[in-house]
Deep mutational scan, measured.
Amino acid sequence: MPVRRGHVAPQNTFLDTIIRKFEGQSRKFIIANARVENCAVIYCNDGFCELCGYSRAEVMQRPCTCDFLHGPRTQRRAAAQIAQALLGAEERKVEIAFYRKDGSCFLCLVDVVPVKNEDGAVIMFILNFEVVMEKDMVGSPAHDTNHRGPPTSWLAPGRAKTFRLKLPALLALTARESSVRSGGAGGAGAPGAVVVDVDLTPAAPSSESLALDEVTAMDNHVAGLGPAEERRALVGPGSPPRSAPGQLPSPRAHSLNPDASGSSCSLARTRSRESCASVRRASSADDIEAMRAGVLPPPPRHASTGAMHPLRSGLLNSTSDSDLVRYRTISKIPQITLNFVDLKGDPFLASPTSDREIIAPKIKERTHNVTEKVTQVLSLGADVLPEYKLQAPRIHRWTILHYSPFKAVWDWLILLLVIYTAVFTPYSAAFLLKETEEGPPATECGYACQPLAVVDLIVDIMFIVDILINFRTTYVNANEEVVSHPGRIAVHYFKGWFLIDMVAAIPFDLLI
């Protein structure tokens, strides 16, 4: 008679799926529990143990900040960024110097990925580790590398530091407007667009060049630039800015003055950032001319202004700041037409079709709590990747769950009947059967004279019903998954307890 339990259901295979997918890609990662103190490590794979030199037993239950890997060259700011990422709910990448158990130093890129439950609360953290440099290539500990984003994938490793954006290309926007319009339909740009040429040739750093990471940081200074100062900065030398009595002219307006920039070969870094931020506020060169004239017309309804409409929906549905990093990277690809469009465009503009998908598509409701890094690593669709929660398995109709209350009560009843059979069957065979043979035949009273025979008949009927119930009862397979398919249940029961239950259900007393 089957006594099969499996009270692990309803099970959740999400954690096993993450481990299996990460292991298949030869990654070095740990999984931490966000619900406990210090976000203790609950799993670390073999790749991480080989990377740091510690065994799994030495890593388990330690804080996922990996303070046991810190050393003299470990930056405090990087460690603080990892700790801050564990307090938030967004994906974050941090470069930090770690030390192995043998004392060797290596520069590592740590990717902190939160995993949320159905309520939107962070319950786990996945920390992925990628070695960037070994100890002989690690720089000085005073050099802070965590304020910069990861290198873009479309640049060669040897040319990542030679990417320079020439400031004269930004200063000569109005001069290039006529050349853009003359391109017409034969050019790649839309009317009114501004073409910015980027020099990728390796050259020595000069005062006129600005690194790509500095251009990325310009967006942080746009908020500090007032509207009046932006307007004066875009007017140009024809209309000098008016300053109040006793007030000095704005240095932001002076930063885009061609006369002032041409007199000296070098520009201050602050002026460069502010000038680029001011130019980015204009949607095209037409807006710059309109600002000089004193009238700013409404933005025209053409394809170039609607190019950012799908980007707005993608940004609203993005799951991490990696989408913004990807957008900034692609927006700086050289030799393309940049349409400086305000994100607050007309909502009635139709979304044009684009061959290049900048932001990841909208994630469906079932995966809105899973970050983009987890979705990318697992390579699963929205119909396959579940949320991290207890999910009731989908069972067929008329199927009994093996952990249901009805099955528990039924098993206790069958257990009592088995005990009765084990006690009274030998007793009936030894004593009652002998008395029946010696006594007179009682054929007239039937079952009324033999109450134990009636009980034995009921017990046999219950055993037959138990066999039928076992054909529709779920079970737990070797992978700790609840199986509810009727065919698989029948095959599993035939290979197991079916023969024993059938022999126990045969009414031998009635056959004798």
Rank of each mutant, 00 (worst) to 15 (best):
R4F: 15
R5Y: 13
G6W: 08
A9I: 13
F14G: 07
T17P: 11
I18N: 01
E23T: 07
Q25R: 11
C39H: 14
C39I: 12
C39W: 15
A40W: 05
C44V: 15
F48N: 01
C52T: 14
C52K: 01
G53A: 01
Y54Q: 01
S55E: 06
P63L: 01
C66S: 01
D67R: 05
H70G: 01
R73F: 03
A79C: 08
E95I: 04
I96G: 01
F98A: 01
F106I: 05
F106N: 01
L107P: 15
D111Q: 06
P114S: 01
V122H: 06
I123H: 09
L127E: 01
E130N: 14
V132Y: 06
E134I: 04
P141H: 06
H143R: 14
G149S: 07
L155K: 09
P157C: 09
A160M: 11
K161E: 14
K161G: 06
F163V: 06
L165P: 14
L171A: 14
L173D: 12
L173Q: 13
E177P: 14
E177T: 07
S178T: 10
S182I: 06
G183W: 06
G186H: 14
D197Y: 01
V198T: 06
D199I: 01
A203E: 15
S207F: 06
V215H: 05
A217D: 11
M218V: 07
M218A: 15
D219Q: 04
H221T: 10
G226L: 10
E230V: 05
G238I: 11
G238L: 14
S239L: 08
S239H: 06
L248K: 03
R252V: 09
R252A: 05
H254P: 12
S255L: 14
S261C: 07
L267W: 11
R271L: 09
E274H: 05
D287V: 09
M291L: 12
A293Q: 08
G294D: 11
P300G: 07
A303Q: 11
S304M: 15
A307Q: 11
P310S: 13
S313P: 11
G314D: 09
R328P: 12
R328F: 03
T329F: 03
T329E: 07
K344G: 14
P352N: 07
S354A: 14
E365W: 15
N369K: 15
T371A: 14
E372I: 04
V377M: 09
